[in-house]
Amino acid sequence: MTSRESLAWLLGGARVTVPTNGDPVLSAHVTHEELKLFVFANEVERMQREELAALGELDVVPIPWHEPLPPLPAGAEPEASLAAELRAARAQLLPVEIERYRALGSDLARAVTAVARELRAADSERHAAAALAHAVIEAGAEPVVLLAAGAGRLGLRHPLPTTAPLGDRAMLVVGARRHGLIANLTRFVGDASDADERLLEVEADAFAATRPDRSLAEVLADIASAYPAHGFQPSEWLNHHQGGPTGYAGRDPRATPTATDLVTDGQAFAWNPSAPRTKVEDTVIIADGKVEVLTADPVWPTTDVNGVLRPLPLPFV
Rank of each mutant, 00 (worst) to 15 (best):
L312C: 12
D261H: 14
E125K: 01
H240G: 05
V291C: 07
T17G: 05
H240C: 10
Q242Y: 08
V299I: 14
A111S: 15
A84R: 09
L160E: 10
A204W: 05
V263W: 07
N42K: 09
T246R: 02
T163N: 13
A91N: 03
L94P: 00
V115G: 08
A121C: 09
E218M: 04
A259Q: 10
A229S: 15
A151M: 09
T260M: 12
Y248A: 06
R169I: 03
G244Y: 09
A170R: 09
P234F: 13
A109H: 00
R254P: 03
R157E: 14
T302E: 13
K290I: 09
G167M: 07
L93M: 10
P313H: 05
P301F: 02
V308Y: 03
Q92C: 12
E97H: 00
L82K: 06
V96G: 04
L26Q: 06
P212M: 13
V263Y: 02
G167T: 03
I98P: 05
R178C: 09
S27I: 06
D265L: 12
T283R: 04
F188P: 00
M171N: 06
V219K: 01
S3T: 15
T278R: 09
L154V: 06
S274E: 10
L262C: 02
A122M: 08
S3G: 13
R49I: 15
D191I: 02
V174F: 05
L7Q: 07
D23G: 03
T17F: 02
A83M: 09
P228G: 01
A128G: 10
E85Y: 06
D23Q: 10
R102A: 00
A135P: 05
T295R: 01
G190Y: 12
S274W: 10
V317W: 15
R198P: 00
V202Y: 06
N42Y: 13
S3Q: 05
A209C: 08
A195P: 03
H158M: 07
E118Y: 11
R153T: 11
V136Q: 11
H158R: 11
G307H: 05
A141H: 03
G56T: 08
I137V: 15
T210F: 09
P301G: 07
L11P: 10
P301D: 06
L52K: 02
E281D: 06
W9T: 04
P228L: 13
P165D: 06
Q48V: 14
G12L: 08
E34G: 00
Q48E: 15
H241E: 08
E50S: 12
